[in-house]
Design a protein around this nucleic acid. Sequence first.
DNA 1: GCCAACGTTGGC
DNA 2: GCCAACGTTGGC
Length: 150
Amino acid sequence: MQYWLMKSEPDVFGIDHLRKAVIEPWDGVRNYQARNMMRDQMQVGDQIFFYHSNCDVPGITGIAEVATSGYPDKTAFDPAAKYFDPKSDPNNPRWYRVDVKFVRELNRTISLQELREHPELENMPLVRKGNRLSVMPVTEQEWQYILSLE
DNA sequence: GCCAACGTTGGC
DNA sequence: GCCAACGTTGGC
């Protein structure tokens, strides 16, 4: 069992959308580090913190779980898609995605500001200045600690 | 292989 | 809306 944190803009796709859809592909990731984690490391059942970015109160708002391991992100092949990438060859896909499944919303949003206040979490890429990774691993200690804040 | 220019992310 | 930080691109 591994733990992850995934960022999404709530205006585009937030925890509410996932709650209604239950299972959705996590597509549109166009960053190699994040791609590698989805393609190579994520396993069905892994737990995910759902993080809202680029909004009034950025922070962790819910929990999801990995519903499929990595598979090619087909939106990269579709010229009409927002995340079309002409360099992604269907015979050798450049981008991958996983499906994620809604687990629950947190009782409250644990804001980035609050997460920064805890020395126990200082090694998380999330709280590092300038970090833009949209998919990142979370240690079991960090996972449990954050849940204890809820 | 270097690095300047550019585009994007995302907090504030 | 601003802008710092970072990743990518492409000329050389």
